[in-house]
């Protein structure tokens, strides 16, 4: 549905922001996200990537500049309308209340007055949790819990998912599982995925990477092009070279110690 449109869906135009009491954290930032993109926001801890995501989601208002969604100022949208277009996925999933999977996925209907396009069962099935529909989320693994919320965003029908380090604290199996799910959603439904991460290895899986340092974009592009030695040194203050192998790339170096 969205992949036919080729213009930017979400734009940050000369956005500046700082938290009260901090130095200037984001300064004059401009970038755009189109339909069906799969972007990794790579940066060290404290580089500003979480803030950028929050600005993009509209959770914080920029001091200067403007954020636009479908070419309209994000601030102009009513909350419910925005919720049908854009979803924000926090890093910490802190649900200690015994909601069932079905109940949480069902909350994706909240922005709607009339039932949305996708049914709850279909959403649960898409993420592979239909058989656990009535299980309490508190009894699920971390990876499964994240999938529950992805199903929720599917019901919301959002075309953009902004995720803040969703792979943190996940075992590699679940990291791969989760990425594969997101990839599938991008390919089959044209959903744009923007994910903040600080693991270079994971960034290599993305088709487009934005390297962030001190709230500014150091480079955008395909990982092999962007993640040069100098770039990594600049962004992460470490000397590592990427070397290309037969079927992809991997980080290598002389041994770390």
């Amino acid at each position: 549905m969205f992949s036919a449109y080729s213009g930017p869906i979400l734009e940050l135009d000369r956005v500046s922001f700082r938290y009260p009491g901090a130095g200037r954290i984001i300064d004059d930032l401009t970038f755009a996200i189109g339909g069906g993109e799969f972007i990794g926001l790579l940066g060290a801890n404290g580089s500003g990537k979480s803030t950028i995501l929050k600005l993009a989601a509209g959770m914080v208002r920029p001091d200067r500049g403007i954020v636009k969604l479908w070419d309209r100022p994000l601030a102009a949208y009513r909350n419910k309308d925005r919720a049908k277009l854009l979803c924000y996925f926090p890093q910490h999933l802190d649900v200690s209340v015994p909601f069932t999977v079905r109940e949480i996925v069902g909350m994706g209907m909240y922005p709607y007055d009339i039932p949305p396009a996708m049914a709850v069962d279909e959403a649960m099935d898409t993420v592979g949790l239909l058989d656990k529909a009535d299980v309490y989320v508190t009894n699920l693994s971390g990876g499964e819990r994240r999938r529950v919320f992805i199903a929720m965003t599917l019901i919301q029908g959002a075309g953009i998912l902004l995720l803040d380090e969703p792979l943190a604290n996940l075992d590699i199996r679940y990291q791969i599982e989760f990425l594969r799910l997101l990839r599938r959603l991008q390919e089959q439904k044209g959903i744009s995925v923007v994910m903040a991460l600080h693991d270079i290895n994971v960034a290599l899986q993305f088709e487009k990477v934005m390297v962030i340092k001190n709230g500014a974009v150091l480079g955008i592009g395909a990982p092999e092009a962007v993640l040069t030695g100098p770039m990594i040194r600049d962004a992460f203050d470490v000397s590592i070279e990427l070397r290309k192998a037969e079927h992809g790339m991997y980080i290598t170096h002389e041994k770390w110690f």
């Binding site: 959770m59 419910k80 924000y88 996925f89 926090p90 649900v95 909350m107 909240y110 919320f149 929720m152």
Partner: peptide, 18 residues
Amino acid sequence: KALNALILGDEFAYSLGF
């Protein structure tokens, strides 16, 4: 509904349009 959303956390509540 808002209460349910708040339980999920401020971010999800915002994301759900509250």
